[in-house]
Amino acid sequence: MGRKNMTFEQALQRLDEIAERLGDGTTTLEESLALYAEGAGLIERCGRELGEAKLKLETLGFQKDGEANGL
């Protein structure tokens, strides 16, 4: 499955896998660089999706504390 077709949850799971691989010390320098680049792209994507979700919630009237405005 390509990164563009991943759900947010799948992207987070892949980030966990990447962090684990990078942390176990078994990857070559080339593999580490490729994993780092993939992870950086996934972090950017997840951040963008979280920002969009926050805007949607604010548009629907939710405050930062999770309470609905005016209810």
Rank of each mutant, 00 (worst) to 15 (best):
M1R: 11
M1F: 09
R3M: 11
R3W: 05
R3A: 11
K4E: 14
K4N: 11
K4V: 09
N5P: 08
M6A: 04
F8Q: 06
E9I: 03
E9A: 03
E9C: 01
A11V: 01
L12I: 11
L12G: 02
Q13R: 13
R14G: 04
R14I: 03
D16V: 08
D16H: 15
E17T: 13
E17I: 14
I18H: 03
I18Y: 10
I18Q: 04
A19V: 11
A19H: 11
E20W: 15
E20N: 15
R21P: 04
R21F: 13
L22N: 04
G23P: 05
D24P: 03
G25V: 04
T26L: 15
T26W: 13
T27I: 08
T27W: 05
T27S: 15
E30L: 14
E30Q: 15
E30I: 12
E31K: 06
S32W: 05
S32R: 06
L33P: 00
L33N: 15
L33W: 09
L35W: 04
Y36N: 09
E38C: 00
A40Q: 12
A40V: 05
A40N: 09
A40E: 09
G41D: 09
L42A: 02
I43S: 10
I43A: 13
I43R: 13
I43W: 04
R45C: 04
R45Y: 08
R45H: 07
C46P: 02
C46G: 04
C46F: 01
C46D: 04
G47L: 05
G47D: 15
R48P: 02
E49G: 03
E49W: 11
E49L: 12
E49I: 07
G51C: 01
A53G: 08
A53T: 12
A53L: 10
K54P: 00
L55W: 07
L55T: 10
L55F: 10
K56P: 03
K56C: 10
K56M: 12
L57C: 02
L57M: 12
L57R: 12
E58C: 07
T59K: 15
L60C: 08
F62R: 00
F62W: 04
F62A: 00
Q63L: 14
Q63S: 09
K64W: 01
D65S: 06
D65Q: 02
D65G: 02
D65H: 01
D65K: 00
D65Y: 05
G66T: 03
E67W: 07
E67Y: 05
A68S: 13
A68C: 10
N69H: 07
N69A: 13
G70Q: 08
G70M: 03
G70W: 07
G70R: 10
L71H: 06
